[in-house]
């Protein structure tokens, strides 16, 4: 969406313009394309693991951070859902409160996913290790950028206050976080159990 302006020539932000159904359709479509693009490297990495390491799973791979990261991401996702529900009622303080928790749990997930990849338990030049580390690293990088998006959404809601006309940013962040959750769960199950 291009920015637009009001009578006093203030430049408006995307969240400050009302969105029609067609606008929302366009934004959802664009986001879907973006997520399809994001899924391709994950699929490549999952395939790469079988090419290089077959179905082998290293016995020393650390289990608990992965389980804890899954819980943290789930909690983060639940709070972004709560944020979206608040957005439907235009309850801005509710969005900010939900996002405070969502951001915290997403940060915890980022750290937890980084632990098994970088705690030195796995040999990075083993067949399993050399696919495990880039895959976990990619998920972590994706999640880091999602986290920045969550920070931006929260900051926008807080700063723009009652000038907000649409909450697409809140809904989109929620969708992206759940997409990340699915990517993570698939990766976790595949790398740890299959």
């Amino acid at each position: 969406m291009a920015a637009s302006s009001n009578q006093s020539n203030d430049v408006l932000y995307p969240m400050q313009t009302p969105l029609s159904r067609a606008d929302l359709f366009k934004l959802k479509g664009g986001l879907t394309l973006f997520l399809i693009g994001l899924a391709v490297p994950i699929l490549l990495l999952l395939e790469m693991r079988y090419v290089v390491a077959g179905g082998y799973v290293a016995p020393q791979v650390t289990q608990w951070p992965a389980i804890a990261a899954t819980v943290a991401m789930l909690l983060s996702g639940l709070f972004t859902v709560a944020g979206s529900k608040s957005a439907k009622k235009a309850n801005r303080p509710g969005i900010v409160r939900s996002y405070n928790w969502a951001i915290l749990f997403a940060l915890i997930a980022i750290i937890l996913i980084g632990i098994p990849a970088f705690n030195g338990v796995l040999d990075p030049v083993s067949h399993y290790g050399e696919t495990f580390i880039p895959t976990m690293g990619t998920i972590d990088v994706y999640l880091f950028f999602t986290w920045i998006g969550m920070l931006a959404t929260r900051s926008r809601v807080k700063r723009l206050g009652n000038k907000i006309e649409n909450y697409w940013g809140v809904y989109a962040t929620n969708i992206v976080l759940w997409f990340m959750f699915v990517c993570w769960v698939v990766t976790w199950v595949q790398l740890y159990y299959l």
């Binding site: 693009g37 490549l44 990075p124 880039p134």
Partner: peptide, 22 residues
């Protein structure tokens, strides 16, 4: 295809600088 090759290049870069024997 672009995300596919971007990921491949990241792996190739890791193979060069870590180096992973990918």
């Amino acid at each position: 295809w672009i995300p596919e090759i971007m990921m491949t290049f990241i792996l190739a870069l890791l193979a060069k600088i870590v180096p992973l024997p990918l």
